[in-house]
Amino acid sequence: MKKLFSLLLALALVLTMVPAMAATYKVGLSMDDLNTEFWMGNYKAMHEKAAELDVEIVEVIAGGDANKQNEQIADLIAQGCKVIIIAAVDSASIISAIEECADAGVKTIMDNRSCPDGNPDATVVADNEQMAYDEMTWLIDYAQRQGITFDNAVMLIGDLGDENAVQRYNGFSKAIAETPGVVNVCVEVPTEWDQQVALAGLQNALQSNPDIDLIITPSDFLWTPIQSALEQAGKWAKIGEENHVAVISFDGDVNGMQMMKDGYNWANAAQGAIEEGYMCIEIAVDFLNGVEVAESEMIDPGIVCNLENFEEVRESVWGWAGVK
């Protein structure tokens, strides 16, 4: 038995020493977490494009830990990655890692989350504030045309350390403030991107304001707690049905688009999860080929899908493909 075990161990060691077929390019990828459909779609798109362009991806996942992410990026530098794509856990904490990369001559590409106070070599990002603003502006305009107001709205907020969450909050708030009297936010609920926290916050909000008529969510990731809380309050109803609570969401993932199709969601600001993933790998290859990018910030324009343009634009939203 011992001999067999030794033989297997030796074989395993030999196999690990056999060099793999080396790819043409090697790129580091530091993800925050893969806890939402958006990040999964973005991650898979990068792998797809990497396979197409013969790129080897050395990846690490920080699991929501900003310090861990910085350490992992140091490991990627040590492993010889000359370009690192970063989906930052925290827009402020990542600055030191970006500086470390610059000192080591490693190019950095920010994936979906910008770092306004840092100096990355490229940023692929949707203009979250503008998209949230456009989405809310549409809702306000639509409500005015229909002669309705939302007097008891709840605004869910993502993690306050996430630049995107803050931008979405700012975009929604700016549009509401510009046209007073249509949407009145009575409660703001921080969710920390945690479904349980979102559920408890919404339940609490429904207790204090049983007449809630609009939920503004910064991500389609929060649809399950929204459904649970509204079901419990007897308010899970489709558009046009009694007790319906309007919801507008963000991301354009499969759950959010399903809710639009099923008649619960009024609007969805969709980022290009797949396009952003493709762009990150393409820029990484450009950097490795010595090509500098013309603009350091690549803006994914995104799509605001709403009740009025749903039929027209739904096919362009990345999450629509998975809708049943």
Partner: peptide, 16 residues
């Protein structure tokens, strides 16, 4: 019980 309460099991369920 948490999953049945919120309605889903994301990879971040009960993180921390």
């Amino acid at each position: 019980m948490l999953a049945g309460q919120s309605g889903g099991v994301p990879t971040s369920l009960a993180e921390g």
